[in-house]
Amino acid sequence: MRRMREESAPEARHGYTIRQMAAEDLSAVMLLEQASFKNPWSQDLLKRELQHEWSTILLVEEEREADGPELLGLAIFWIVHDEVHVLNVATAPKHRRRGVARAVMDEVLARGRAKRCTLATLEVRKSNEAALQLYRAFGFRPVGIRPNYYVDEGEDAVVMVLDF
């Protein structure tokens, strides 16, 4: 496996700052997960992702007047060999339709290209039309269905692939 852990300075793309998550961000990330999903990732699962060399959690932030940065969204992904696998993309409900997911996906894919990946994969809820449109806009194409992938709701996932 390739080493993924590289601390880099936060980047400001699309008017947002994108940086890697640190352990001290855990409480804010948990609030975002709970606001974004019926079945959010657990604190233990997020802690484990922070420990894996191949896993990266990117946070999207926006500066506020006096309060410091506000967490708008995140992406969790792995780079293993020559593949990027996107596990989770979340945008705070009040910040949806502002390009937050697009900005973080731009960064995820840029990091994959920088590591000379040849492929990106992800699963997305069959009913999540906004996400399906976003991923198609990046060039992802559906290649299959994972039946009952989201077990708690009994919903299928669309498997999508992007060739770099």
Rank of each mutant, 00 (worst) to 15 (best):
V108T: 08
A114Y: 00
Q133N: 15
R64G: 13
H85N: 12
L32G: 06
V89W: 09
A130M: 02
T17F: 15
E24S: 12
G154L: 09
D67S: 13
M30F: 12
E153G: 05
A9C: 04
F140R: 00
A23W: 13
A130I: 00
T56W: 07
V108Q: 02
I57R: 01
V80S: 14
I145K: 00
R102G: 02
E70W: 05
E11T: 04
M30L: 15
L45S: 14
R98C: 05
P10F: 08
V89G: 11
R146N: 13
K38T: 12
W41L: 14
P69K: 10
K38I: 04
A92M: 05
D152R: 07
Q51H: 12
L87V: 06
V158E: 09
K47Q: 11
E123A: 09
L72G: 00
M21R: 08
L119Q: 11
E129S: 09
P69F: 03
A130T: 01
N128R: 07
L45D: 04
V158H: 07
D25I: 11
S27M: 14
W54Q: 08
V89E: 08
E61L: 15
E107N: 02
S42A: 09
Q43V: 02
L119E: 10
R13C: 15
E11S: 08
F77A: 00
E153L: 03
H14I: 00
W54A: 15
N88W: 10
L32Q: 03
E62W: 03
E6R: 13
T56A: 10
C117F: 13
L45R: 12
T121R: 15
G15Q: 06
V159P: 00
V159G: 01
H14S: 14
P69D: 05
E155F: 01
T91Q: 01
Y150W: 02
I57P: 03
K126M: 10
V86E: 05
D25K: 13
P147M: 00
A157C: 06
T17I: 13
L26A: 03
Y135F: 11
P10W: 12
K47E: 02
L122Q: 06
G73Y: 11
E70P: 00
E129H: 10
L46D: 00
E129W: 08
N39W: 11
T121V: 15
V89K: 10
M4T: 14
G139V: 03
E83T: 09
A157G: 07
V104M: 04
A103H: 04
L71P: 02
L58M: 00
N88V: 09
L119G: 05
A92I: 02
V161Q: 07
R146S: 14
F77R: 02
V143W: 02
A110E: 13
A114V: 01
W41D: 11
S8N: 07
V80E: 12
E7V: 07
V143L: 05
D67C: 07
